[in-house]
Design a protein around this nucleic acid. Structure first.
Lengths: 208, 208
DNA sequence: ATGGAGATTGAACAACTGTTCAATACTTTT
DNA sequence: AAAAGTATTGAACAGTTGTTCAATCTCCAT
């Protein structure tokens, strides 16, 4: 029987070359550019082998989706070697890092999101990963500002993620670099805002 | 010869039914769900008629893209019957309006964006519409706050659009309604911020 | 070397794709 | 009523798609 896609990590090198090829094609040409044949060609492998490692085309796409979700989660993984507030700051900065704002990654994310919108199956995987990501951000906020109740951390995390999504989506359209920088700053302000009022914004700096 | 897709407005009823069907399918099942046959079926029309009104599948998709772009631009069109600051406020609020935050519209936008990412042709149309949209927002900001130099208005518009994109993208994933509301408020703060410092954010509400 | 298990190939199949086109139906003009 | 123009149909075409499968190849334990 096939090796199944539940297999994590690097399998026989060929299997991961196939997955890599699929992600590359998806990122560059969208789902219509991903056929079993084009994947095989891109991976330098016979057609049959793609179906050997991935029973379905759906399984192949699911594997790609899993890889990207995994990657996203690493962005907000706690790093014990850093002070909590520095951890948070870096995680927020990573979103605008050069290696993340590449067309290849952003485009891949966009296509996967579009797929999730069209297919209930992908949608669930995606939604779960999205929730875990928000939880990750909330956990970082909580470590950096322990005085905040968890509920507030989740709130701030949601707000931050809205902006982050906006950042990378807009980055695809080639918006001003400076605007992205300002948006990142905005996420920092939300994260580090003092407890008092609503998160990180005071319209009137006047005194009571 | 065919009627061409340059034809704006409502043509023979059948033509617009076809376009409507295409947009519906695109929104619900993504580009792989849009075939000339499925469009014809959804529109209750023979296969040949789709190619009669739209020479290409690409032409059909372009028409859909045009419709959505047109719709987006109307969101920031100036409305002389309102005071400038009210115009701006309403435009910013419209993004979170119920009729816009529907899956149908958001999903359509997402798929078109994904298509633009895969096809240079769509990409240019999309980029142009995106620019016009930012210009529209900037113009509204400028009317509401005439003391701002145009450059600053564009800056604020860019920042606002980043958040708006984040809002509707995240809305697709079913994020907390409250978070969306807070994000909209944030766009208002950016728009209406006093001229002094950076746009709409003061980390410390202290006095000088 | 011999057997066997897994890896790899490409041909074959049925289903679907976009596009073309001759044939018809319907409207309007003459 | 005839002619002309447009709208509408579905069959036909060549190509592509995902999936299956018998046939090979590779490698390792025996």
């Amino acid at each position: 029987m096939g090796t199944s896609a539940v297999n994590s990590g690097e399998q026989s090198d060929r299997q991961s070359r196939i997955l890599e090829a699929a992600m590359d094609l998806l990122s560059r040409h969208g789902i219509s550019g991903v056929s079993m044949r084009s994947v095989a060609r891109e991976a330098g492998v016979a057609l049959g082998l793609v179906n050997y490692y991935y029973d379905d085309k759906a399984t192949l796409i699911r594997a790609a989706l899993g890889r990207v979700d995994e990657h996203d989660l690493r962005l907000v993984a706690p790093d014990p070697s850093l002070a909590p507030d520095e951890q948070l700051r870096r995680a927020l900065r990573r979103v605008a890092a050069a290696d993340l704002l590449t067309t290849r990654y952003l485009s891949l994310r966009l296509h996967l999101w579009a797929l999730a919108q069209a297919d209930e199956d992908y949608a669930q995987i995606n939604a779960a990963a999205f929730d875990r990501y928000i939880d990750g951000v909330a956990a970082l906020v909580s470590s950096a500002k322990p005085e905040l109740p968890w509920e507030v951390c989740r709130e701030r995390a949601s707000d931050i993620v809205v902006i982050q999504n906006g950042v990378w989506l807009t980055a695809l359209l080639g918006v001003d670099k400076a605007s992205i920088e300002r948006s990142i700053e905005r996420t920092e302000q939300i994260a580090f805002a003092p407890l008092d009022g609503t998160a990180g914004q005071d319209q009137e700096p006047g005194q009571p």
